[in-house]
Amino acid sequence: MTQKKLYILLFISAIGSIGFISLLFAFTNKGPERDMSFKRGFLYDAPKKIHEMDLKYNGYYIAGAYKDKIYLGNPKSPLYLTVVDTALQSKEVIHITMDQDSLPLRSPQVRVVPPYFFLMDGTVPYVLRGKTRDWKGYSILENPLYFNNAQPMDSVTLAIRTMSSKTREFALGTIHLADSATMILSHELLKKQVDGVFDVDGTLQYNKQQHQLVYTYRYRNKYIVANDNLQLQNLGTTIDTISQAQIKVSTIASKNQQKMETPALRVNKYSSTSGNYLFVNSLLLGKAESIDMWDKSSVIDIYNLVKNHYEFSFYVEDIEKNKLKTFQTLSDKFIGLIGNHIVVYQLNKHFKVKEEKKTFITAQNTLNIKNIKNNTRILVNNTAVRAKTENL
């Protein structure tokens, strides 16, 4: 081989190598975010899908689940609930009625916690409560208290996230619907890193068995566990290492509003809690995980809230290229919405959660509620600014 041919061969090899590396780099950038600092554990006997139903509509959300029933809400028809059994063999539609002719249905949500249900819209605002025996709602929010996320704690108390009139940032709190409807906020639970709005976005849940508020941050590896009095009990850490929200925020001067400059790195998409456990749909690929499996499923990481550690993970398969959207756990079952479909996974036996036996508080025995509240919490003025309602 002549020296000239050798140079040509080396040049072609070098160009080919550079092109190959560039191609790999391009595909890597388009793929999922991988965090090499952690490795998930997957059990051999992982939770398995046992039921599936095509709902023929992909706009449902899970309004509640109790015993053998799953309640599905529909934003386009907020006064109707679709009820399916946990075996996904039967389906019925329930019509919610109200004690008034009409309400502005701007952004309503239904929450079903038998024997009660709630129809709520924190942007108007109003809260209707009724019994599941007749599905008639009665207005119980006397004062205009605004919120953009709410979960019933009992029949007269809501866990909420709202924008504080004091800080103009998001805060967690409670609304006590009896006793003239008062809002109590904690400005200590959510920790600001950038702007106190986008960077603290997350999923609010209430664990009825543990009587705890659980808030999972969307853009960092933390979750908050607080008691009914809004006192921090634990600041948990998910298994990844994204401790700082990777977002940039700018201000629209003409509207005096903030916006994200570029799409942020999402860490935790959604979460649910029951019993001793927190279930988190993570969006980060761990060490040695299959990209092929990641592309056709969603991963659920399970944390023990009592022992404060990670347990294991399992996959929820995509359906028709649709990812898991939202989910809830009920006893020993994992219920998920994927595209037009609802699925039920059988959890391992040691994850079975006993049915809630807590007696609901009624309006007649709420006089002592205020006396047990922590004096350090801040009572928000009833003219609190309207909460932001964008889907952050």
Rank of each mutant, 00 (worst) to 15 (best):
L230I: 04
Q346D: 04
V316G: 03
T123N: 12
I8W: 13
G16C: 07
K323E: 15
T362P: 01
A87G: 13
N374V: 09
D121E: 07
P152A: 04
V306N: 14
G137R: 06
Q100T: 14
N276E: 09
L190S: 05
K370T: 10
K69Q: 14
L172Y: 04
L190A: 05
G16E: 02
M53Y: 08
N148Y: 14
L283R: 14
T203F: 05
Q233W: 00
V343R: 07
D85W: 07
E390P: 06
Y61A: 08
V156K: 06
L367F: 11
A171E: 12
V344T: 09
V197P: 02
N365I: 00
I8M: 11
N29D: 11
N143I: 00
M53K: 15
P125Y: 03
F312W: 08
N322F: 07
N29H: 10
P75C: 09
N304H: 03
N148M: 10
S186T: 07
L119R: 03
N143Q: 14
H176Y: 14
K76Y: 15
L9D: 09
I160P: 00
K307T: 07
P263A: 11
L305N: 03
N304Q: 04
G336Q: 02
G336T: 14
R106I: 14
N234L: 11
W135Q: 04
D240M: 06
S297F: 04
V343M: 05
T238I: 06
L128A: 05
K248Q: 13
G236N: 08
